[in-house]
Design a protein around this nucleic acid. Sequence first.
DNA 1: GTCTATATGTTGATAGAC
DNA 2: GTCTATCAACATATAGAC
Lengths: 229, 229
Amino acid sequence: MVKSKSQKRRAPARRHTRPTPVVDRDTEGRILEAAHAVFVRRGTAGARMQEIAATAGVNPALLHYYFRSKERLSAAVFQRAAGELLPSVISVLASDRSLTEKVESVIDLELSHLSRAPYLPGYIISELAHHPERAVQLVTSLTGLVPAEVGRRVFGALRLQIADAVRRRRIHPIEPEQFVVNLLSLCIFPIAARPMLMALFGADDKSFSRFIEHRRRDLPAFFLRAIRP
Amino acid sequence: MVKSKSQKRRAPARRHTRPTPVVDRDTEGRILEAAHAVFVRRGTAGARMQEIAATAGVNPALLHYYFRSKERLSAAVFQRAAGELLPSVISVLASDRSLTEKVESVIDLELSHLSRAPYLPGYIISELAHHPERAVQLVTSLTGLVPAEVGRRVFGALRLQIADAVRRRRIHPIEPEQFVVNLLSLCIFPIAARPMLMALFGADDKSFSRFIEHRRRDLPAFFLRAIRP
DNA sequence: GTCTATATGTTGATAGAC
DNA sequence: GTCTATCAACATATAGAC
């Protein structure tokens, strides 16, 4: 058995006798990767530890050896999954680029990332609905700030940038929070709601991909028109 | 025991000796209502039949008497839940009102409905991710058309209306599908992602409600600017 | 139609050998 | 660190009395 309830388990010693390709990671890494795949596809409650073990190609008992419980494993996976989605956006928004560039970058980043991980938004949304407390933990771990502080710093800088652009008659006044939410909505929702939209459009996979490609092309202009004066 | 695997169970005979307030529905109705509450809050896989029975105030065995299995109960609940979200929007979009009126109506309808049922979008998104086949069934039951036909009719009419407005230089060209998806994204995503956004903003319930109220006020103009020529 | 009692099958988790 | 064997705790589902 293992240490006790205390803290992080030490990672298994790496063998340095040969390089470590992604397909042949250390056990902990393989479990995490498999768990990610299964949790994201089935949802936390629907995921089975046994399926995760099978996917990782390891003995089921090892999941508990490394992560102690399904709850902890799911928390680790959530952190990892959410960490893929937001940091790049936050860094773009917090950069010193122009508003136009920010809009274009965020749209490009989000759409290309999400089209490769279409289950991600739905998983994160659903996970946060059932564990709202993880949202705070998530934002904190991503930014190193408590939420109230994030609001002040990230949105504070954006507010100044917007106010400046408004003063120069470049854009219509808008709260920075609304600016960001509008941008994220237009990127994320279509991917998250993909099955519903496909049914609504009578689209198959291929034509829905075309739809997203059209979006990548048209969305920046759409958004920029919306914030014009 | 019951009929067999055949079809719909007859609803229990209604007692006409007194009116039927919502709180004292017939058993089937109470089960459905309780199941709705539990499935939407916990997700389908996370929901427990026992909790549904307790919420409805009925014996657990009755759930199976009326709905035969958790699977069937969850399908009934999904139909009911999704049926609350889309029909009003579709009827507005398919009406003969102006584009401006359509935009304003959809935003108002969605935001007021969703602010009262914040779990709904997340539930539907997550449910469809795990049961994509239900999307077709849903669209069909709502519109009475197969998806391919919906695309043609609903979006066909909208396409003409947009083309006409473009010809009269009232709006910028846009595909009707993109028009609808943009509109729905801006309404639905902020509610679905509420826990994440609250953490990101450092907002509490009250200030997030204010955020949504600001949205209700500003979103129509935002969207209408985006489709200007 | 509604109840009690129970069957049946999983699931997360652990003990202990290697 | 990894395996086999196994447990206790549910969860869904049914049988049968009332």
